[in-house]
């Protein structure tokens, strides 16, 4: 119970701060938008004769991965200002509550950007979002949460180092390979209009990934926060 209330307090603190400054959301959203624009320059869909279902999964996942890294980075960089990290470490609660609170807030940030990016990508690339919406929502949610679980732990590690901006992608991208692979594969099946049965196992695998690294984060976060 105490861990739960502390988790919600820390998550609430991050959400409140974001609602007041809108720093992370704005920059992450525009970054995602720019990635999509660069893609539309890079692949001339009509000329190449490609449908969105062929390459769309890749585009959506590259956008999600890079924007999530930005937002994860920011969630701990703001704590470095005025030595808030020490404040978090001194919180009279279990360190795992700090991890869970941050993880929850990060997952919500990553998903909030996707809520705007998915309709925009449907406009840009001309695919029928409504037709694939339920499946796509499920795939994106589960994989984004799994990515955030490992990402939160690694962001907390990298923020402690001198070049945290460089280190986070270096640490996170190889280690998060499984969720990216499963995410892309499930998204591709979903975009091509297959039923949930054909990619449900991929979603389940990503969910397992999320669970494993949430547990790892809860167990190991204490060592990361130590001064």
């Amino acid at each position: 119970m105490r861990v739960r209330s502390a988790t919600l307090t820390i998550c609430g603190k991050d959400l409140r701060q974001e609602l007041r400054t809108r720093e992370s959301f704005t920059s992450t959203f525009f970054f995602s938008l720019l990635v999509q624009i660069v893609f539309s320059f890079s692949f001339d869909f009509q000329k190449l004769g490609l449908g969105f279902e062929d390459v769309g999964a890749g585009i959506l996942w590259i956008t999600l991965t890079f924007s999530a890294i930005l937002s994860l980075q920011n969630s701990f960089l703001i704590e470095r200002e005025r030595n808030c990290l020490a404040g978090l470490a001194l919180c009279p609660c279990d360190p795992s509550a700090v991890f869970l609170g941050k993880f929850l807030a990060n997952s919500l940030f990553v998903l909030a950007v996707q809520v705007l990016i998915l309709p925009l990508s449907s406009l840009f690339f001309g695919y029928d979002l409504l037709r694939v919406l339920p499946g796509l929502c499920l795939v994106v949610t589960v994989n984004a949460v799994g990515f955030s679980a490992l990402g939160t732990l690694f962001a907390a590690i990298s923020v402690r180092t001198r070049r945290s901006e460089l280190l986070l992608p270096l640490l996170l991208l190889p280690a998060a390979t499984p969720v990216v692979i499963w995410g892309v594969k499930a998204t591709r099946l979903c975009l091509s209009g297959r039923p949930l049965d054909s990619y449900g196992y991929l979603v389940a695998l990503s969910a397992c990934f999320g669970v494993i690294f949430t547990v790892a984060g809860v167990l190991l976060f204490d060592f990361v926060m130590e001064e």
Binding site: T161, T177, I181, F209, L220
Partner: peptide, 24 residues
Amino acid sequence: RLSAVVGIVGFLDVPIIYYSVHLW
């Protein structure tokens, strides 16, 4: 301390990465 955490998480990840690429 930090590298110990990465060493543990990194190694736990190996079979998962292998399985994911194997499916792919």
